[in-house]
Design a binder for these strands. Structure first.
Lengths: 127, 127
DNA sequence: ATTTGATTACGAAACAATTCGTATATCAAT
DNA sequence: ATTGATATACGAATTGTTTCGTAATCAAAT
C-alpha cells in the first residue's frame, strides 16, 4: 500500500492554500477577493486554478448548492515540511542550519521572533 | 540606474549552480558527471541548460578553447536569500520564525547544528 | 588524409503553469 | 416569462521548463 504521492503545489496554488488554511471553507469569490489585494488576476483565472487543485486532490469541493464551497485537503504542516525539505536539498545542499541562518540573517526577523526561536531551540536541546 | 533584475533560477538551474559554487570553473562534462550521480539525464540536456543559463546571465562562459569553461556569475548568498524570502512569503505567510521552526522540527538538525544556530542568534540579539 | 571520439549548436517536442475569453447554467427580482 | 447578475465549464493561447535527437565542428590518433 503506497501513499498517494502528493505532488508539490505550485506557487499560485500555495497562495490559494494559504487562504484556505486560514479561512477554512471558501467560495471562489472569497478567495479571489483576498487574492486581488496583493495580485492582479481575473476571476476566471482563480476559478480555473481552484478547479485544477480539485482535480489534483489538493482541495475538496462541495457542489450541493450553485456556489461551490472549497476546503483545503492537504495538511499545512506536511505541505510546508515538504517544501522546506526540498529547498534545503536544492538550495542549501542539505544543510538545514544554513537555511535557518540565511532566513534569520535577513532583516525580516524581529526581536520577538528571534526570542521565540531561542525558546524553541532550548526545548529541542533538552531532548 | 536600475539593478538588472535577476530572475529566479529554476530547480534544474539550482542543481547546476550548486556545483559551480562548490567547484568553481567547470566544463559541461564536469558538471554533467556530478549531476549524473543523483539524477538521470542526457549530456546534451545538461549542455542545453548551461547554455540557457548563460543567456540568462546566471553563468559566464570562456569559449577561447574548444571545450568551454563555465563559472557561476550570480552570488550564492544573494541567490539563496532571494529564494528563502520568496518561500517565507509564499509558504509561511511572511513569518521567518515559522520557516525556521519547520526546518528545525525535522530530524535533520544535529546537536552541533542547533548549538551553532544558538550562537548565531545571540550575535543577532546583541545588535 | 581519414577516421574516431568528444564537443557545441540548433531546433523541436513534450510537458507544465498561467491566463483569460466565451458559453452555459442558475437564481432572484421585476 | 424576461432580464440581469453571478456562477461554473470548457477550451485554447501563451509562456516557461525540460528533454533530447541530429548536425556541424574540431582535435587527436592512426
Amino acid at each position: 500500500m503506497s501513499t498517494p504521492h502528493q505532488t508539490k503545489p505550485t506557487e499560485s496554488e500555495m497562495e490559494i492554500l494559504q487562504i484556505l488554511w486560514e479561512k477554512g471553507d471558501c467560495t471562489v469569490r472569497d478567495v479571489h477577493e483576498i487574492l486581488e489585494k496583493s495580485k492582479e488576476a481575473g476571476y476566471t483565472t482563480t476559478l480555473k486554478l481552484m478547479q485544477i487543485m480539485h482535480e489534483k486532490g489538493l482541495v475538496s469541493r462541495d457542489t450541493s448548492s450553485k456556489t461551490h464551497i472549497y476546503r483545503a485537503l492537504v495538511n499545512q504542516q506536511k505541505t510546508q515540511q515538504q517544501l522546506v525539505s526540498k529547498m534545503i536539498d536544492n538550495v542549501f545542499n542539505g544543510s538545514a542550519a544554513r537555511l535557518v541562518m540565511q532566513a534569520l540573517g535577513n532583516h525580516s526577523a524581529s526581536k520577538d521572533e528571534i526570542d521565540s526561536i531561542k525558546k524553541y531551540l532550548d526545548e529541542l536541546s533538552k531532548k
